[in-house]
């Protein structure tokens, strides 16, 4: 494992999550903590990607799986937004991360 290797993100087990989506907004209940969270469209879709993945997922892979490939000029901003979502998820205990 190297500090430069990409970070892989994984969600808590899907069975530990209840969620609903309405018009692109999500509410998510973490059955382990009992906490319920309101997620905007990007956060909700990122969580869906992680829940559907069979293993850890890198940020570039998340971008790819979201299917909204940004223009090259917008890519840093896009990744920063996803990084922020993942950091918030980590703070809430919804995801974990490991180095490849």
């Amino acid at each position: 494992m190297s500090p430069q290797s990409p970070q892989l993100w994984f969600s808590i087990p899907p069975r530990a999550i209840s969620w609903r989506e309405w018009d692109g907004e999500f509410v998510v209940r973490d059955e382990r903590s009992g906490s319920t969270h309101h997620l905007g469209p990007l956060a909700g879709r990122v969580l869906q990607v992680l829940l559907q993945a069979s293993g850890g997922v890198s940020v570039p892979d998340i971008v790819s799986r979201l299917g909204d490939q940004p223009a090259p000029a917008d890519e840093p901003e896009w990744r920063a937004a996803i990084d922020a979502v993942l950091s918030e998820f980590q703070r809430l205990g919804l995801v974990g991360a490991e180095r490849q």
Binding site: R20, W22, D23, E25, V27, E31, G34, T36, H38, L39
Partner: peptide
């Protein structure tokens, strides 16, 4: 939005946590 309405109902529920 329905998500906002959900959060308001949950925040105003006395025993939401009881029912998991």
């Amino acid at each position: 939005s329905k998500a906002q309405a959900f959060m308001q109902l949950a925040d105003n529920a006395f025993n939401y946590d009881v029912h998991g």
